[in-house]
Deep mutational scan, measured.
Amino acid sequence: MKATFQVPSITCNHCVDKIEKFVGEIEGVSFIDVSVEKKSVVVEFDAPATQDLIKEALLDAGQEVV
């Protein structure tokens, strides 16, 4: 499964690193693409990962998800 999250609070590479760390810890996540320019995060994943778990990880990383 693939999901795109709009994350307007992404401003720098530190944000990218933190997002990759938090989302990458979720079992089932196979790909993460964070774009500072587009302020988006694209995640490819399989169970047990879910969109809700990914959104929670983004929030835990200090990001706003819309």
Score class of each variant (00 low, 15 high):
Val7Lys: 00
Thr4Ser: 07
Gly24Thr: 07
Gln51Arg: 14
Cys12Lys: 09
Phe31Ile: 07
Lys39His: 08
His14Ile: 15
Asn13Leu: 12
Ala49Asn: 02
Val42Asp: 06
Gly62Glu: 06
Val65Ile: 09
Ser35Asp: 12
Glu20His: 15
Ser30Leu: 12
Lys21Phe: 11
Lys21Trp: 08
Ser9Tyr: 12
Phe45Pro: 00
Cys15Asn: 09
Glu37Arg: 09
Thr11Arg: 13
Val16Pro: 05
Val66Cys: 14
Val42Ile: 12
Glu27Trp: 07
Glu56Ser: 13
Thr4Trp: 14
Ser40Ile: 14
Ile19Gln: 00
Met1Gln: 13
Phe45Leu: 01
Val34Glu: 02
Cys12Gln: 09
Thr11Gly: 07
Leu59Lys: 10
Pro8Met: 10
Phe31His: 12
Glu37Thr: 10
Ile19Gly: 01
Cys15Pro: 05
Asp17Ile: 14
Gly62Asn: 05
His14Leu: 15
Val42Gln: 07
Ile10Thr: 04
Ile26Ala: 03
Leu59Gln: 09
Pro8His: 08
Asp33Val: 12
Ser40Phe: 11
Val29Ala: 03
Gly62Thr: 10
His14Asp: 14
Asp52Cys: 12
Gln63Glu: 05
Leu58Asp: 01
Gly24Ala: 08
Pro48Leu: 00
Cys15Ile: 11
Ile10Pro: 00
Val23Thr: 03
Gly28Thr: 03
Gln63Ile: 14
Pro48Arg: 04
Cys15Ser: 11
Val42Arg: 08
Ile10Asp: 03
Ser35His: 06
Lys38Thr: 11
Val7His: 03
Thr11Gln: 09
Leu53Trp: 05
Ala49Lys: 03
Ile32Arg: 02
Lys18Leu: 12
Ile10Leu: 10
Val66Pro: 06
Glu25Ala: 15
Gly28Arg: 00
Val16Asn: 04
Ala3Arg: 05
Val36Arg: 04
Ile10Ala: 04
Asp17Asn: 10
Lys21Gln: 08
Val23Cys: 03
Val7Leu: 09
Val36Leu: 11
Lys21Gly: 05
Lys18Glu: 07
Pro48Asn: 01
Ser40Tyr: 14
Asp52Asn: 09
Leu58Asn: 00
Val16Lys: 13
Glu37Val: 10
Val7Glu: 00
Val7Asn: 03
Ile26Arg: 03
Ile19Phe: 03
Asp52Lys: 13
Ile54His: 00
Met1Asp: 06
Asp33Glu: 13
Ser35Pro: 00
Leu59Trp: 09
Val7Asp: 00
Cys12Ile: 07
Asp33Arg: 12
Ser40Asp: 04
Ile54Glu: 02
Thr50Gln: 01
